[in-house]
C-alpha cells in the first residue's frame, strides 16, 4: 500500500486509478488512511461480495473466523476487461507498484 501511495502520481499520469478493497469498515479504513497518508480510495466490502466475485475470498481468514480478502491485484482496462493479475501465495509478498506500472505501459492501456 505504501508503495502504491508513493507512486500514485505515476498511476494518475497514465490515467489509471488505484483503489484498495477490503472488508474493513469505512471508519477503520479512514483511520488507516489518516495515519498512513493514503490518498487513493479505500473501499469497504463488509460482506465480501465483490471479494467473492473476483474469487479472492479467504474464508474465515480473519479474526474470529471472519471472511476476508486474500491479497491480490487486478488491472482493468477502460472496457472493464481484466488485463493483468497478480495472485501471491504469501501474504508478505505483494505486487510492486513498479510491476503494475510496467504492465500498464506494456499493455498500452
Amino acid at each position: 500500500m505504501r508503495g502504491f501511495e508513493r507512486h500514485i502520481n505515476e498511476f494518475h499520469q497514465r490515467g489509471v486509478e488505484v483503489v484498495a478493497i477490503s472488508v474493513d469498515s469505512p471508519a477503520e479504513s479512514q483511520k488507516l488512511c489518516q495515519s498512513r497518508g493514503y490518498r487513493f480510495p479505500f473501499l469497504s466490502d463488509p460482506k465480501a461480495e465483490t471479494i467473492r466475485q473476483y474469487g479472492v475470498l479467504h474464508a474465515k481468514g480473519g479474526e474470529g473466523g471472519k471472511d476476508i480478502a486474500r491479497p491480490a491485484e487486478f488491472l482493468l482496462d477502460a472496457g472493464g476487461t481484466i488485463r493483468w493479475v497478480n495472485l501471491t501465495d504469501d501474504i508478505r509478498v505483494r505486487a510492486s507498484p513498479e510491476s503494475v506500472l510496467a504492465a500498464i505501459d506494456r499493455l498500452a492501456l
Partner: peptide, 18 residues
C-alpha cells in the same frame, strides 16, 4: 463510473486490519 473517467483501474485486494 471510475472506468468512464480513467483509462484503467487497479484493484488492490488486501486482508484488512480488522
Amino acid at each position: 463510473d471510475l472506468l468512464k473517467h480513467h483509462r484503467g483501474l487497479v484493484l488492490v485486494f488486501y486482508r484488512g486490519y480488522w
